[in-house]
Amino acid sequence: MINQVYRLVYPGQFEVTYKPRTINSDKVIIRPKFLSVCNADQRYYQGKRDASVLEKKLPMSLIHEGVGEVVYDPKEEFEVGQPVVMIPNLPIEQDDHMDENYLRSSRFRSSGYDGFMQDYVFMRHDRLVPLFKELDIHTAAFLELVSVAMHGITRFNFKSHDRKQTIGVWGDGNLGYITSILLKNKYPESEVVLFGKTKRKIEYFTFIDKSYLINNIPSDVEIDHAFECVGGLGSEMAIEQIIDCIKPQGSISLLGVSEDPVEINTRMVLEKGITLFGSSRSGRNDFVDTVDFLEQNKEVISYLNHLVTKVVTINNIDDIRHAFEEDQVSAWGKTVLEWKI
């Protein structure tokens, strides 16, 4: 069969590519249904990656957040029409001491490897996780981002000490919102404190215990541990504030992505004995944990639903471009593509 793949060839310009594929393989054939635009996709679309990176990775199909419907399964492990979340990470080896998302040999869709903007996606069985009925399909579109927060919290559980009276979250964007709601449900006895930049965004965090604007943090504020969900140029200030507020021997989980190096006050990291660790992407276990968690804590789904701010129907390439432009001007939430092309 001939599969149509919709690729970004230059910043702001998409083209269709025709790729021959065979159904006589062990891959499950998935029809994408709902996709979600990520900041990483936008950086490619807007040409905000280094020129050498763009030259190396383009042309490439974007989008690594999405759900689809099973069209064909040669092993009949999935039912035809079954909704599944698609895992973008593709490991080709196993290491007993390293998660699949940190293996240098792993490939990742929409980062040097074609993403989900295709007529059909051919996937290994272990790259798919079934969804449950009560999970809103628009919200399911960005389960990958939820799994990233879940992965960071899982690592936090192993690396932090047991005193978790107060957990601070820096960042009032999508990742900060998701991380905060997961933390509040996984550590109900802990006080989750948000440190944000915009009062209007902070108002969405109705489930947290306390919040501060980052330009007005009282000098006596102390936290046991922190999550940095800012990224970009703002991550440097966020890390600096966290180091000031955190109690000795606390842990800092870095989740925000920055294109440029940031300065860190290592003197105070040493003086306070701070554990500082990074988390990136996620793997199959994180997706399974995320789906299981939401099925057992269905009240969380309604909070995640608030992140869906735009649903754009995609019938052609012009619609794709329109969706990315619309997403750029959105100050809050996730843009979901209803994939009908």
Rank of each mutant, 00 (worst) to 15 (best):
G196D: 11
K197A: 14
T198S: 15
T198W: 08
K201Q: 11
I202A: 02
I202L: 13
I202P: 10
I202N: 10
Y204D: 02
T206Y: 15
I208V: 15
I208T: 06
I208H: 02
D209P: 05
K210S: 00
L213D: 03
L213M: 03
N215R: 10
N215A: 09
N215G: 05
I217T: 04
I217P: 03
P218K: 08
P218S: 13
S219V: 01
S219Y: 10
S219H: 15
D220Y: 11
D220C: 02
V221Y: 04
V221L: 02
V221Q: 01
E222H: 14
E222G: 15
I223G: 11
D224M: 01
D224Q: 08
D224H: 04
C229W: 12
V230N: 03
G231Y: 12
G232E: 02
L233I: 15
G234Q: 00
G234E: 15
I239G: 08
E240S: 14
I242A: 04
I242V: 01
I242P: 07
I243N: 02
I243L: 01
D244G: 12
I246F: 09
K247R: 09
K247V: 10
Q249M: 08
Q249D: 14
Q249P: 03
G250F: 14
I252G: 05
S253T: 15
L254M: 12
L255G: 07
G256R: 06
G256V: 00
S258I: 00
S258D: 03
E259F: 01
E259N: 07
E259D: 09
E259H: 14
D260S: 15
D260L: 10
P261A: 01
P261M: 13
V262M: 02
E263Q: 14
I264T: 08
I264F: 09
N265M: 04
R267Q: 12
M268P: 13
K272N: 01
G278D: 03
S279M: 07
R281V: 13
R281G: 14
R281K: 10
G283R: 10
R284P: 13
R284Y: 13
N285R: 08
N285Q: 12
D286Q: 13
D286M: 13
F287C: 00
V288A: 04
D289N: 05
T290C: 00
T290D: 12
V291K: 02
F293T: 00
L294C: 02
N297K: 05
K298A: 12
K298T: 13
K298F: 08
E299K: 15
I301R: 00
Y303W: 03
L304V: 03
N305I: 02
H306R: 13
H306W: 08
V308M: 03
T309Y: 09
V312W: 14
V312D: 07
I314L: 09
N315S: 08
D318N: 08
D319Y: 04
I320W: 07
